[in-house]
């Protein structure tokens, strides 16, 4: 088996006459966090459902862990965990009972189940409410319970569809932390989202979807270079005379903007923070703050579609 745990080639899905996914190809490597990003209705969920064999493939092929999900869905679903968009649980059952049902469906031996369930609940910090009915759970708790299900399953690939939508910032951060923990264990994570900013922080590589096609694919830094043409923005807050000139003299800096009293923004092709700090200190200035912004997905996304300058055709098929 190759190092690619998921490989799609010319994957296509048609609903009647409408094309939801239009000949996309991508490969996900073992252990990475791969983001499927794009507006609603761009084909992300359909792609995910095809990976799980939950919807038929109209054309092309997809392999998940070496299996064809259409032909051998059980083998795929045994090793892949899925957290659907707005996950639901049986409200009349407790968190533990819900997981116990899934454990029976997966077919874990009875002796194994209890330990797996307790362990998974502890890791998403739901042990205290494990015997409460899910009806009382908040959205964030339900999402965590969904993640507990994937943990309990011991999945090799975790597919998370819009896991952070509708969560408050704190819950989102917690959830992203848990996703990083999954990666640390060697689990491959596939993440779909329309929230570019949040997801950017965890993804190793992303694929930007647009109208059923993958418009861009690669790491955020790569995409930044490709679309924005270099893109480190260093912000400096410092006191001192003639700083603007000194900062402009640093190699690699293309532009210096003054964005406020004693605040400057440098645009550079690389991270120039060390040189900038030296320039301020050597000039007798006082350095107060120094920060760098990598290329942001939001900027890439906007930049890309500006460049295309076509009338944005965003269907809402979801």
């Amino acid at each position: 088996m190759s190092a690619h745990v998921i490989a799609a080639r010319d994957l296509t899905k048609r609903y009647g006459g409408a094309i939801a996914v239009n000949g996309i190809s991508f490969a996900v490597e073992k252990g990475e966090i791969f983001g499927l990003l794009g507006p609603n209705g761009a084909g992300k969920t359909t792609t995910i459902l095809m990976m799980l064999g939950l919807t038929e493939v109209s054309g092309g092929e997809i392999r998940v862990l070496g299996h064809d999900p259409a032909r051998d869905p059980l083998a795929v679903k045994r090793r892949v965990g899925y957290l659907p968009d707005t996950v639901g649980f049986y409200d009349n059952l407790t968190a533990r009972e819900n997981l116990a049902y899934t454990a029976r469906l997966i077919g874990f031996p009875p002796a194994d189940r209890r330990e797996r369930i307790e362990d998974a609940l502890a890791r998403v910090r739901l042990t205290e409410v494990a015997d409460k009915r899910v009806a009382t759970f908040s959205r964030g708790m339900r999402q965590r319970l969904g993640l507990a299900e994937i943990l309990m399953k011991g999945a090799e690939i975790a597919i998370l569809d819009e896991p952070t939508s509708g969560l408050d910032p704190q819950s989102t951060d917690e959830f992203l932390q848990m996703i990083r923990a999954l990666k640390a264990e060697g689990v491959t994570v596939l993440l779909s989202s329309h929230l570019l900013d949040r997801v950017q922080r965890v993804c190793d590589r992303v694929a930007l979807f647009q109208s059923g096609r993958i418009a861009l694919m690669g790491s955020v830094a790569e995409l930044g270079r490709e679309v924005l043409g270099g893109g480190f923005a260093v912000e400096i807050e410092a006191e001192g005379a003639g700083l603007e000139l000194r900062l402009g003299g640093i190699e690699g800096v293309s532009r210096v903007e003054r964005i406020g009293p004693d605040r400057y923004r440098l645009l550079a092709g690389r991270d120039v923070r060390p040189e900038a700090a030296r320039a301020v200190v050597n000039g007798g200035g006082q350095l107060r703050r120094l920060s760098v912004e990598g290329p942001s997905l939001e900027a890439i996304y906007a930049g890309f579609f500006q460049r295309q300058s076509e009338p944005g055709e965003v269907r809402d098929a979801a």
Binding site: L49, L52, L54, P73, L74, A75, K77, R78, V80, G81, Y82, L83, P84, T86, V87, G88, F89, Y90, D91, T102, L105, I106, G107, G146, E149
Partner: peptide, 14 residues
């Protein structure tokens, strides 16, 4: 409507 269907069908059952 409870949105449990896709989660259950993502388990290894037909």
């Amino acid at each position: 409507n409870r949105r449990t269907l896709s989660r259950i069908l993502a388990q290894p059952i037909y």
